[in-house]
Design a protein around this nucleic acid. Structure first.
Lengths: 195, 195
DNA sequence: AGGTTATCTGAACGTTTGTTCAATATCAAA
DNA sequence: TTTGATATTGAACAAACGTTCAGATAACCT
């Protein structure tokens, strides 16, 4: 028994990343074994090493891909020049994107401590890049006199934490639709920045 | 070699919980071995089992103790009848208490997934109890007409997420003191609830 | 001083861990 | 149809895992 019928790296590769993300998010990086991932994919543990040099690289790949896509998706929709409109875009985008990728978000916030210092620095840098996008909006609004903020850096952290928190309680088919949640959060953010 | 000089359960017991908390917070529950905890305490792994029936019980003990103390500490200071004053008390209390116990807070938000269903339910119930304390403040303010909230449940989750987020970036000796941070966050919360 | 209890060691247990690799079957191209 | 590249198995490795326990020493009580 060796190569399996219908086996292709373009199929197995993504499948490994998908199952690893699912399992890491559910049980935690350290709690999931390579054999568990392999079983979920439908291969033996040894086969995983055709796709990743080791377990940590698998995690780094997931985290980096997520952060890259997050930043790219935001830059693809960011348009408005009006600070208030741009802030609303950010609020709605962040909630929507994070809800669509709950597992990746969970990983990005939880498993940084399992990274080597070099890998940690890479992910942290991407996170900072994203945060700076929001901070730039807040500053531009402050300069234009439409926002009243005691501290733009703290406001950045506060808003991101608040928005990301939606992931911890939101359940599809619950009392409120995604769109309604976006609207309610935008209302709170708008008031908080004094716009 | 058997019992060590100066050995006492009143010393070793707390020491085990303290080191376990430190290590779990730093590396994650699954990533820390009983031998690592024992080494940090200065005993052999077998000695830990005089203090806990198993590894999960050690984690549950830490989580439950933290939640109990959080709720007790809040109820010990909660006094004001004015909704705005009470909300300010809550904001300042939450930031202060959570910064003082960063490790326990980190654990409480990260390691629930490593609990058995029964233990999970216990901790989740305590968390809900705490959240309800904030929601009651928001509702009383809304009834009194001093807060304008689109949704008191969402506002509860949003405010708690925002406040807890301070733990992810605050560093002692940084640009801002704890008191200054409390004041800035209170300003944002106050505006967000329309008070 | 002697007996009892509390505390800890150190070795052992069966499992599971991440990772490597020779052997082998399938796929794609010629 | 042959050939070479690709994809996978399954066994093996040493190390580490959570947990148990008989034996040994220190502390406490009378």
């Amino acid at each position: 028994m060796a190569r399996k019928a219908g086996s292709h790296s373009e199929i197995t590769g993504p499948k490994i990343r998908a199952e690893a993300q699912r399992l890491f998010a559910r049980h935690g990086f350290a709690a999931v074994s390579m054999r568990q991932i392999a079983a979920a994919v439908g291969v033996q543990a040894g086969a995983l090493y055709l796709y990743t040099p080791d377990k940590e690289a698998l995690l780094v790949d997931l985290l980096k891909t997520h952060m890259d896509e997050l930043i790219a998706a935001w830059r693809a929709i960011s348009k408005s020049n009006d600070p208030t409109a741009r802030l609303e875009e950010f609020v709605r985008f962040h909630i929507r994107f994070n809800l669509e990728r709950a597992e990746a978000v969970f990983l990005s916030y939880m498993e940084l401590r399992n990274l080597s210092p070099e890998n940690f620095a890479v992910i942290e840098d991407l996170r900072k890049t994203y945060e700076t996008e929001l901070e730039a909006i807040l500053k531009s609004g402050q300069d234009a006199g439409v926002f009243q903020l005691p501290d733009s850096k703290l406001a950045t952290m506060a808003i991101i934490a608040m928005l990301t928190g939606v992931n911890t309680w939101f359940r599809e088919g619950g009392r409120l639709s995604r769109d309604k949640v976006e609207t309610i959060y935008w209302d709170m953010v708008r008031k908080a920045v004094g716009a």
